[in-house]
Design a protein around this nucleic acid. Structure first.
Length: 374
DNA sequence: GACTAGTGTCGAC
DNA sequence: TTACGGTCGACACTAGTC
């Protein structure tokens, strides 16, 4: 959305944001109904063994004990140490993907337009289906929820609004198994007392800056002029925030586009600053990335590495290639150079190591182009 | 000053 | 008391070029 072209897409659209409740943990409850009522914590265990790793998702019972996404597994276990029936399970992405496919197939049936967001969220536009009648939206959302519940046993929270921005905030308003409808004329009242962090794209850092500028709530954000916002956040994000504070958003609901980057990251068995000790991990990361790139029919023009240091700070380095490549050797060679440079610049030990390729080009398209040129 | 390429940071899930 | 994953998208900043 540009400064000179601020349109209010709020008029005339009806959009649902469907958000499956505590998705991974809910999937686990469905697979093993004996988990119902117990705290369930789905974990990403790292290569360090033991309880090294972080919590991916937890169900609401676990959240009552302060166990939420992102906290260390050890901390989660500590919080639940007096709860003998708490369950800690490793993530099972294949199973969640299967469940997601089934759920999204149902959601898609109701949509004029469908947009998948990650594995557990989707936007569906239903303007035509409802003939622009907001009055019928709740009934349709109930039908979606009912079918998901009957067919798969899954609960979700749905936000209904004239645009994606407000629909997303609305789905988060009442959880789990919630349904929140925000009509066009209710947007201002709905948003005004909500925390600025509820706006998509406003994370911890942005929220801190906004707080310093005097905006804790979305209503307060709407009092800040666009000049201040663009000065602090740049033109694009500043304009986005200015509009978001007013509930204005004209982003269309679109089928998800193809990937633009592919990456793999791992936690080293032991923190180190010796490049030789990381070469084994670097090589297998490169192989994994390369395999995925080739399987998806891409070549890559940019290679990056990411280091997460012992204080959990992040260091990245990237390099563009002269021309798109599909070479596994070239990927490893460039990644190794970047790693050597990054390690030389860092004072701390490296805890985690990642490899990323971007500026992806469809190799199939390239072939065609080459053939054409020939 | 406009544009671009390269690089690094933030945020969502 | 501490504890700490993996993958992706978007965009800001900077330097170089014209």
């Amino acid at each position: 959305m540009s400064l000179t072209n601020v349109k209010d897409g709020s008029k005339g659209r009806i959009i649902f944001h469907i958000d499956f409740d505590y998705f991974y943990a809910q999937c686990e409850e469905l697979r093993d109904p004996s988990l119902k009522g117990k705290p369930v914590v789905v974990c990403v265990y790292s290569a360090r063994g033991g309880d090294s790793g972080a919590v991916s998702t937890s169900n609401y019972k676990a959240r009552e004990y302060g166990v939420k996404s992102g906290i260390p597994i050890k901390l989660a276990k500590n919080k639940l140490k007096d709860v003998p029936d708490a369950k800690f399970l490793p993530v099972d992405h294949n199973y969640y993907s299967e469940m997601s496919d089934k759920a999204m197939k149902i959601a898609r049936k109701y949509a004029d337009k469908f947009e998948l967001v990650g594995v557990d969220e989707a936007f569906i536009e239903v303007t035509e289906r409802l003939e622009n009648d907001f009055g019928r939206a709740k009934e349709l959302a109930m039908a979606v929820k009912q079918e998901l519940k009957n067919e798969l046993g899954l609960t979700c929270s749905i936000g209904i609004a004239p645009n994606k921005l407000v629909a997303k905030i609305a789905s988060d308003f009442q959880k789990p198994d919630g349904l929140t409808l925000v009509k066009p004329e209710e947007i201002k009242t709905f948003l005004t007392n909500l925390n600025v962090g509820k706006i998509v794209g406003v994370g911890k850092k942005t929220e801190e800056i906004l707080n310093e500028m005097g905006a804790r709530t979305i209503g307060e954000l709407s009092n800040i002029d666009i000049y201040q916002l663009t000065k602090n956040f740049g033109k694009k994000i500043g304009t986005y925030l200015y509009n978001a504070a007013r509930g204005i958003d004209d982003e269309p609901v679109v089928e998800s586009e193809s990937v633009t980057q592919i990456s793999r990251i791992t936690t080293l068995k032991k923190s180190t600053n010796a490049v030789e000790e990381m070469l084994g991990d670097l090589e297998s990361l490169c192989k994994d990335v390369h395999k995925s790139v080739i399987e998806r029919g891409f070549s890559f023009k940019s290679v990056s590495i990411m280091l997460i240091l012992d204080d959990l700070s992040i260091k990245t380095k990237s390099r563009s290639l002269k021309s798109p490549s599909t070479s596994s050797e070239e990927l490893f060679k460039v990644a190794k150079v970047l790693l050597e440079e990054a390690v030389a610049e860092s004072q701390l030990l490296v805890r985690r190591l990642g490899v990323k390729v971007s500026e992806l080009v469809s190799s199939k398209g390239q072939d065609t182009l080459f053939k054409y040129i020939e």
